[in-house]
């Protein structure tokens, strides 16, 4: 079982996530697709870590998890705030950031 296979799966997941970010319009689903991309990066990092027999890649993966958790907290906070202001939860209609 070579590391190549894991990297290939990681590449497929990353591309799927990228396609999802570009296609979907619901910000919740866009956040989910961002999670997909981050997880693809995690899989590649763990694969490289296994290849070198070194723990550094796992530390990177854990830091990526921390970043993902922060992103989820802030992103969901923004979505909840949007919903409470009765704004459409749709990225195509949220074009302006001011205010």
């Amino acid at each position: 079982m070579t590391v190549n296979w894991y990297l290939l799966v990681s590449a497929i997941i990353f591309s799927l996530g990228a396609a999802g970010v570009m296609i979907r319009r619901n910000p919740l689903v866009i956040l989910l697709c961002l999670e997909l991309m981050l997880n693809a990066g995690n899989l590649a990092l763990i694969g490289f870590s296994r290849m070198w027999g070194d723990g550094a890649g796992e530390i990177f993966a854990i830091v990526v998890m921390v970043i993902a958790a922060c992103e989820v907290a802030i992103g969901l906070g923004i979505i909840v705030a949007l919903y409470r202001r009765r704004l459409p939860v749709d990225v195509d209609e949220l074009k302006e950031l001011h205010g």
């Binding site: 958790a69 922060c70 992103e71 907290a73 802030i74 969901l76 906070g77 923004i78 909840v80 705030a81 949007l82 919903y83 409470r84 202001r85 205010g99």
Partner: peptide, 16 residues
């Protein structure tokens, strides 16, 4: 991030 999430979503009426 925790403080930001509370500040964003914690108020009763949303952002403003």
């Amino acid at each position: 991030a925790a403080i930001g999430a509370v500040a964003l979503a914690g108020r009763r009426g949303g952002i403003a």
